Lab assay of single mutants.
Amino acid sequence: LYHVLGLDKNATSDDIKKSYRKLALKYHPDKNPDNPEAADKFKEINNAHAILTDATKRNIYD
């Protein structure tokens, strides 16, 4: 999941948040209406963010 956000395992919560915002804006379906690959990437980014920002889920993942 870290690679989805372009981060390593030592990433801080701020790093995760910044990377998520940058990538979410880039791949958001509203910005890429005719690109199904961007929509899939956006879903991956959201999933990675949801797990890595939840301390319990992140510990389980790590």
Rank of each mutant, 00 (worst) to 15 (best):
K41E: 06
I51Q: 13
A48P: 05
T56Q: 04
D40R: 15
L25T: 13
D8L: 03
A39T: 04
Y27N: 00
H3T: 13
Y61F: 07
L1D: 04
K22D: 15
Y61D: 15
L52I: 02
Y20P: 11
K9M: 04
K57W: 00
A39F: 02
P33H: 00
A55N: 11
K9F: 07
N32Y: 01
R58K: 14
K41Q: 06
N59S: 12
K22G: 14
I45V: 13
Y2R: 00
N46C: 15
K41M: 06
P33M: 03
A38Q: 05
Y27E: 12
A24M: 13
P29Y: 05
N46Y: 06
F42A: 07
I51L: 10
S19C: 11
K31D: 11
L25P: 09
K41C: 02
K26A: 12
N59F: 10
A50D: 15
K41Y: 08
T56G: 11
D14E: 12
A50G: 09
D62S: 04
S13I: 14
E37W: 10
L52V: 03
N10T: 12
G6N: 14
A50S: 14
S19R: 06
K26I: 15
D14T: 06
D34R: 08
N35I: 08
F42E: 09
N32F: 08
A38R: 07
K18E: 14
Y61T: 14
L5G: 01
D62A: 09
D15K: 10
K26M: 13
D14L: 08
L5M: 06
S13Y: 09
K22E: 15
A48E: 05
A55C: 05
H28E: 15
D8R: 04
D34C: 01
D54Q: 01
A50P: 01
L7W: 00
I51C: 10
I51P: 10
I45W: 00
N32V: 05
D14F: 00
L1F: 15
A38M: 10
L5E: 10
K22F: 10
D8A: 08
E37A: 09
S13W: 06
K57C: 01
T12R: 02
D54K: 12
N59H: 11
Y61M: 08
N59M: 09
N59W: 05
L52M: 05
K57Q: 11
L25R: 12
A38H: 10
A55I: 05
E44I: 01
D40K: 15
E37S: 13
N10P: 00
N46R: 13
T12E: 02
D8E: 08
G6K: 01
E44H: 04
A39S: 09
A55V: 10
T56E: 14
K31N: 04
K18G: 09
A39H: 11
T53Y: 04
T56V: 05
A11L: 00
D62W: 02
Y2P: 02
T53M: 10
K17Q: 12
D30S: 14
E44C: 03
A39N: 13
L23H: 00
E37P: 04
I45R: 02
T53S: 11
I16E: 07
L5K: 04
V4Y: 02
L25D: 15
P29F: 02
I16W: 00
N10Y: 01
D40A: 14
E44Q: 07
D8T: 06
S19G: 07
K57L: 05
A55H: 07
Y27A: 06
H28G: 12
N32K: 06
D54P: 03
Y20Q: 13
H49K: 12
K43C: 15
A48K: 01
D34N: 07
H49T: 08
L25A: 13
K41W: 05
P29W: 01
D62K: 01
D62E: 06
I60G: 15
S13T: 14
H49D: 05
L5A: 06
I51D: 14
N46M: 11
K9T: 07
Y20I: 02
D15V: 02
E44W: 01
K26H: 08
D15L: 05
I51R: 06
A50R: 13
D30N: 13
P33C: 06
D34K: 13
N35H: 09
F42I: 10
D62M: 01
H49I: 01
